[in-house]
Design a protein around this nucleic acid. Sequence first.
DNA 1: ACTTTTGTTAACCATTTGGTTAAACTATAT
DNA 2: ATATAGTTTAACCAAATGGTTAACAAAAGT
Lengths: 213, 213
Amino acid sequence: MLTIWLNYMVKKRKDDTTEGKILAAARKVFTTKGMAGARMQDIADEAGINKAMLHYYFKDKEKLFEVVFMEGAGEFFPRINKLFESDASLEEMITRFVEEYLDAMQRSPYLPWFIMNELNRDADTFLEKIWAAPNRPNPAKFLALIEKEIKKGNIKRISPLHLLLNLLSMTIFPFIAKPMITRNLHLDEMQFRYVIEQRKTEIPKFIMDSIRK
Amino acid sequence: MLTIWLNYMVKKRKDDTTEGKILAAARKVFTTKGMAGARMQDIADEAGINKAMLHYYFKDKEKLFEVVFMEGAGEFFPRINKLFESDASLEEMITRFVEEYLDAMQRSPYLPWFIMNELNRDADTFLEKIWAAPNRPNPAKFLALIEKEIKKGNIKRISPLHLLLNLLSMTIFPFIAKPMITRNLHLDEMQFRYVIEQRKTEIPKFIMDSIRK
DNA sequence: ACTTTTGTTAACCATTTGGTTAAACTATAT
DNA sequence: ATATAGTTTAACCAAATGGTTAACAAAAGT
């Protein structure tokens, strides 16, 4: 009993346990090489442990991938959804959406890429597993809010669908195209982070300037 | 001699030759499964030919991939570059950029995804091969034009970099996120095409509304 | 103390996969 | 007709890869 308590208090940091090391390694390898390109041996090497441990802690490749994937998606979707469900003003909602999204992606820059990738590879399997979850972002309320604002005459007449697409595009795309952007515009890691930081204000300003009457 | 001429006149359509069938199949398999996920047998099956033919016409997997890839990139980059190099007005350049890009992508919807994917997977190998080509889009002139318009007082003071990012994002992203968009907004193939068609006018309008003084 | 459970390793296995080969078949040229 | 070059096939091969096993070590429970 005492040992349990002690163990609890002195709990190894997540990344120091074998399981943690595997997850960190898997995250890295899966997200750079994709599900198909990732090698179990690569993950084991990256984690500095024996390949058999991967199967000890996570049944097989499929399961390990799923855990890594869900871990990411589970952090992503809920906060977005919560925002869509809130009753903030349009401008506030856009501003906070961009901020939250960009922050989440700064923390896990691999995620949007990862999700798009698997979605593209095997949409059905993925969607049945993840998309059905109760935390799936539902843009309906956001679209409705735009229509309301148009009717009230607060903003220009614009297609809510295209406004939503524009918002998502400008927020997410830079992370997906990061290798292209950094290379072609000669940005290093720091500069890229800085550009993203700027976008937290640039995107909302850009949008509001466009739709404001 | 006669037979040669006849053969020329009655030339099989590209897609009926073995080589053509392989390329079409490879395009399909590579772009849905990625380089790592694609199986040579899958490509052979898709083409309805023997696996050995793949190696007969295209040395190995790497080479076949490269041909498919270059074929796509070669259609993509030059037209963009040509536009950036032209001396159209800013609004015209933006409008034509969106049109050309969206048209190219309607024709090869897999391409942007494909390029991003491989760029993400193995940026260095890819960039050394393709990026160094003389047709690489060079945004410098576009950025310079924006600055000039700002100085002339024709448009608002806006970061040229962010304007470029916004333009690229809004144009390309919907194709990368297509599976997510169609699913989450309940759009079928036709409706998606229609939305894209709308964006040819929506995006330029959205941008100009935002930057016009 | 010793038994049980949990964690770890190296060697091994079965299957998949990219790639080869040699033989057969086809069209063309001489 | 026969040789020649180009095309296609089935069978085969070596390497890579996901996964298993049996032995062993450490920790925890009694």
